[in-house]
């Protein structure tokens, strides 16, 4: 039935293209972001000054990377709660590397960080796939284990920006066409991931697994390998985010990145990623991350009491889920009606 429906779907006429645009899952979050920026800029023009824009981008960079990686995992109907701990471990590792070998080339440190993150992520993937235990439980466990290792390793020690080479810190100061280098890097990664998830066969498989794991297996998709890969990539992105964190922020220590995990999931949900898998895009999640970070800055620019910020973020998340629910109800009704007509 459904295959017939796709075949008889009319070609991309003007009206249906508009319809498709209106059904985009990223639409609500994009509209919210644009509206927020316009309103804030109208009230406080300094908000969109070059420096203001740069701050916005810098603040969103790390969350954007994490949300993009998390999307890959959530799409397969899994979740990774350990990303905050992975980020912390890698950020502290970066600090230690520079403290031990200050002359280490930056590209090598980036590579080591990504590799370290991928290793930790693959541990999550291995445990989830092999033990067939829900990833929520496994990654809740590794959240504590990785954090404990970080605590034991760092103790009371902290590394400060002064311990790192100036060129490394400059990654988050220098700009390319007005965009900070680390943001350019993050954007590139997000775009590559988006293209992969939208176009590549193995990327589409992830959606199939998330929609119905059993059907995906029967269809011949190697679900274990795909899910494992999703965790590995997510770990690698968290590792990259960890290195960039060490470049962006002054101090890295035992508690770096703790508590980030739920913010990351929230960013993905706000960006239209369904929490039970099967739909959502990396771009949407990245926009969600930008929105959540921008709210903080724009509320400050609007002189809203800073204590209201978190409550507003909460309202935003719930609104995003409500919108998603309404849209899926409408879509289901639409499908039912069409089926009825076809019979």
């Amino acid at each position: 039935m459904s295959t017939q429906a796709t075949q008889t779907r009319p070609g991309p006429s003007g009206a249906s293209r508009l319809g498709a645009l209106l059904r985009l899952r990223e639409l609500p979050v994009t509209v919210a972001l644009v509206a927020l920026v316009i309103v804030t800029a109208a009230v406080n023009p300094l908000f969109l000054s070059p420096q203001g824009m740069k701050d916005l981008m810098l603040n969103a960079t790390i969350m954007m990377l994490l949300a993009a990686g998390q999307t890959m995992v959530i799409v397969t109907r899994n979740i990774d709660l350990s990303v905050g701990s992975i980020l912390g471990l890698v950020a502290f590792g970066t600090g230690s590397i520079f403290a031990a070998v200050p002359t280490m080339p930056i590209w090598l440190v980036l590579l080591v960080g990504v590799g370290f993150g991928a290793l930790l992520g693959s541990l999550n993937g291995l445990l989830t796939v092999w033990a067939k235990v829900p990833s929520l439980v496994i990654t809740l466990g590794t959240l504590y284990v990785f954090r404990g290792v970080n605590n034991g390793w760092a103790g009371p020690r902290q590394f400060f920006a002064g311990d790192r080479p100036e060129a490394f810190g400059n990654l988050s100061v220098d700009t390319l066409l007005g965009v900070p280098i680390i943001t350019v890097l993050a954007l590139a990664v997000v775009i590559v991931l988006a293209v992969y998830l939208a176009g590549a066969r193995s990327g589409r498989d992830l959606y199939a697994i998330g929609s119905d794991p059993e059907a995906a297996r029967l269809f011949g998709i190697n679900t274990s390998t795909r899910v494992f890969t999703a965790f590995l990539v997510n770990g690698a992105l968290a590792g990259l985010a960890g290195v960039l964190y060490a470049s962006r922020f002054n101090a890295v220590g035992a508690t770096t990145g703790s508590g980030l995990e739920l913010d990351v999931v929230a960013a993905a949900v706000v960006g239209g990623v369904a929490i039970f898998g099967g739909s959502g895009t990396v771009i949407g999640a990245a926009i969600g991350a930008i929105l959540l970070n921008t709210i903080t800055s724009s509320l400050t620019a609007l002189r809203v009491d800073k204590f209201w910020q978190q409550a507003i973020v909460g309202v935003l998340i719930i609104t995003a889920i409500l919108i998603d629910r309404l849209a899926s109800l409408r879509h289901a009704k639409h499908l039912r009606e069409r089926e009825g007509r076809n019979v």
Binding site: L262, V269, I275, W308, Q310, V313, L322, R325
Partner: peptide, 23 residues
């Protein structure tokens, strides 16, 4: 009653209630 997924809802209210505490 609205039928939203509890994992997502309570991530939202996690932020909301903590935010209200701050308010």
């Amino acid at each position: 009653y609205v039928g939203l997924p509890s994992l997502a809802v309570t991530i939202g209210t996690l932020a909301l209630f903590r935010g209200l505490a701050l308010v």
